[in-house]
Amino acid sequence: MYGKGLRALTLATLVALTATFALVVFWAPNDADQGFIQKIFYVHVPVAIVTLVAYVVGGIFAFKQLRTDDRKWDVRSYVVIHIALIFNVVGLLTGAIWAKASWGHWWVWDEPTLVSFLIVFLLYATYQPLRFSIEDPERQARYASVFAVIAGAFVPLNFMAVRMASSLVHPRTFATAEGGLPGEMMFVFLVSLVAMSLLFWLLVKYEITQKNVTWQIRALRRRLLGDDAVAPIGRSAAPTIAPEAAKPLGQRPRVSYENSPEARSRGPEEIAT
């Protein structure tokens, strides 16, 4: 089946998230200056880190798609960037709330994380429009991958430039003069980081599984009922053609498997998950 290990991962994510929120609310010490509201830090910063790493990972997947011309990398790159965009919005909102609570303004240009987040969001917000404006699925995959590679490399460069430009009043949580976070805070933060990473991974897996299942059902319906019974997919920003692995057995061209013994030994289900 698709989504092997999905249930275990779901449970692990639930446990980790519950533990994180319990620790954040009941155990982590209140900040001396900012009080309880500072605890949004345990959501904001891990979400931000996961987002930025995910954008870079999306770029790496896209690079693999360009190198191998294998559609599964396009699907992965698309899904990672899609979920990262959602995390990006969450990061922006929690950042704005934190800024309002601690500085009294919804937006602070002095905070480099928030500003680079906005710029990166504006850039990645064009990923789907770009895909949507290219009809040929193959060209869509290739152009989207080129975009993802450029944007993935842009993320750290942008972060550096914005950080240099800001006037450094942002709380440098990890490198203050007193030696950074107290141990308890650091522990809660790391737990939260693990939980957010798990959540991200889970959402990515769910979306990939959903796409694979949809493709498989379409392919099966087409074989059972004939081509006319299945309505064609219209223009879409998402990848519309299944990777070879998502097609039912017997329809796959054998040629593509000849040169890779590991692909031959794997079942069709496991490749796409």
């Binding site: 504006l122 850039l123 064009t126 404006s133 152009y143 842009f154």
Partner: peptide
């Protein structure tokens, strides 16, 4: 250039990329 809405795509992608 070979997308449907190139006049929109160019500033949308280009301007954020040029922020640094």
């Amino acid at each position: 250039i070979r997308t449907r809405s190139r006049d929109l795509i160019v500033p949308m992608i280009g301007l954020p990329l040029l922020v640094p």
